[in-house]
Design a binder for these strands. Structure first.
Lengths: 342, 342
DNA sequence: CAACTTATTGAAAACGCTTTGGCTTGATAC
DNA sequence: GTATCAAGCCAAAGCGTTTTCAATAAGTTG
């Protein structure tokens, strides 16, 4: 059923029908009501592609999905989807094989100029991120999940990674730990740098010398957690605590500790960052895992919200949101063991 | 830059330019080449929404994403994205809060009639799935990831869940196990039923009585794996082997076994199904996990491929693809322990 | 009662492309 | 030399909306 047909059915012009449905003020309230009711009854819905053409709006938000098929990603998107439910705005997923943000430039460029989306979300930015520069230059609306340190103005939503790591590390230091390993995210990302900073500041505040060898970077896989933890545990003197960048990393760390015959929460303390996955929860680990927590899903939902505001005309320079991170203590953290034979 | 302008630039009519770019045969090869080159040079690209309107094609494939933010999902989609790279076809994600396929009907219905997508992918079908019936009735192209037992013809791509479980179970039986717990997926899904069947058939073949109490159903979370395994391990006589539906479930089972002071691969054997995640690999577990394996990412890639074929006119009734599943033995499986005191 | 508003509706012009149905031109066939 | 055909190109008609600009009817003002 097309507009013309539907309008004839109602004894009205396409103009009036369109306006009635679009919520324009110059339509008689009774007429509007009748149109709305009949639309439901007859199942009329405007052809989305005609609307897109004439309005120039795509009705979609783009996200670029790395090949890594990140598990974080699904949660974030799920949150976006939740918020966008009923908004008549879609989520468009663009693939990329490239991990490095520089190599992703063509994809963002294509996406921004394709007319398929009205805005994009940029993930895991670097302090000086080319994608942000690009999108800004193109004048294309975008929201950064995370932050960048660039001069280029950009709307962002981030969690307080620095604060999270400061608190986690401080807590460990307070428990008497001195050799605290941090297994951070990929080097070069702003969030990794923030975590680095939080970690270092906490040590410094408590008068503990920073040892660069105790910090490692890499992707959030259980394998990396395992390998790194395993090798750290072979050192002498060995570390007494680990801060893990993600739940997956923590899984690896747990295994490594156990495989060395050590006990978590007694010999070795562990704190991880938990993005809150429905299928893998720190409470259920054994021993339960102390964690800094911030819901990836909520971030996704709020991001969608902010993008909507951005599209509604709110200036990007006004959209800066920093979320606090909870530290939830469970069984995996305990007082540092008294100096052992290693 | 619009077509008209671009055409004027070339000294050609819009018609010819459109045809040249569209690869139609009635264009001089030299002309086509010139058009293609200039298009790149001047950066001309047809307005996607105008194309959509006039062709009636959306250039996108829809997927419905459950609130569960399934980790499988990201892998599958990532695979799709990989295949769709360069095809000028997008992936559209639609949200849903509803887990049950019946409740998802309105979402699929809206998606199919929205004009936003040319086809949809249906996940985890039930033997008699309403979504399949709906899409068929609407005459809307769709591919089922999994299978249904309905009369309604449908294109599908599935893995041999039955065979996988038959082999896994048979192997355990051959090792002397008699009380084998299966932690299956959600009840009612075809793949769960197939797994059930494979499990039961294997037992029957080997002359072991099927005990319904040894089979549990539920979502693929590590918590469920843990809870169920934990409670099974309290029974007497206790089971000597577990077949876990997913890697997450297996994590839970591992923990449960360990928390009871038992050793995996000796006291308790475990086989899980591995969808091949880049961040969580069975080889790295301790002990390494025996698993039936089938790449979710490859399934996604192939699914995208099949959808393209479907859109290209290949009849749905012709598209049935059943993938074999490997069984990879590692350290988590061993001979059944001789009857213990429990 | 004439002159203005105001409320409500329509006609028609975009939006930027694809595609149908011609129209040339030069070559081939008879 | 005329008839036929193929190759290559173009004009113009949509595709289904939204939105500008105008028109009409009804109410208000002086």
């Amino acid at each position: 059923m097309k507009l013309k047909e539907f309008a004839r059915h109602l004894g009205l012009s396409p103009t009036t029908v369109s306006r009635a449905l679009g919520g324009y003020p110059e339509v008689n309230e009774q007429t509007r009501k009748r149109v709305a009711e009949e639309a439901v009854r007859l199942g009329y819905r405007p052809n989305i592609n005609a609307v897109r053409l004439v309005t120039g709006r795509a009705g979609a938000i783009g996200v670029v999905m790395g090949r890594t098929g990140e598990f974080h990603f699904a949660e974030f998107m799920s949150g976006m989807a939740e918020r966008l439910d009923g908004e008549d705005i879609d989520i468009l997923v663009s693939p990329t094989t490239d991990r490095d943000s520089t190599d992703q430039i063509p994809i963002y460029s294509r996406l921004a100029t394709s007319g398929r989306v009205d805005a994009v979300v940029v993930h895991s930015p670097k302090p000086n991120d080319e994608r942000i520069a690009l999108l800004h230059d193109l004048g294309f609306p975008f929201l950064v999940h995370g932050r960048s340190e660039t001069e280029v103005p950009h709307a962002w939503l981030d969690i307080d990674n620095e604060g999270a790591l400061r608190r986690a590390t401080s807590h460990l230091v307070d428990l008497g730990h001195k050799r605290i390993v941090m297994i951070n995210g990929p080097a070069g990302r702003t969030f990794s740098l923030h975590r680095d900073k939080g970690y270092r500041d906490a040590l410094q505040e408590r008068g503990i010398a920073f040892d660069p060898r105790l910090v490692a970077h890499g992707h959030f896989t259980d394998e990396l957690g395992f390998r790194l933890a395993r090798s750290y545990l072979e050192q002498s003197p060995r570390p007494t605590a680990f801060v893990a960048g993600s739940m997956m990393t923590a899984l690896g760390v747990y295994r490594a500790v156990r495989s060395r015959g050590l006990t978590i929460g007694r010999d070795i303390s562990v704190i991880a960052h938990d993005d809150v996955f429905p299928y893998l929860t720190p409470e259920n680990m054994i021993p339960s895992l102390s964690a800094t927590r911030s819901s990836m899903r909520s971030a996704g939902a709020r991001s969608a919200d902010l993008v909507l505001q951005l599209l509604g005309g709110r200036p990007a320079s006004e959209i800066h949101e920093l979320w606090p991170v909870e530290l939830i203590l469970r069984e995996s953290t305990g007082p540092a063991p008294t100096e052992a034979k290693s």
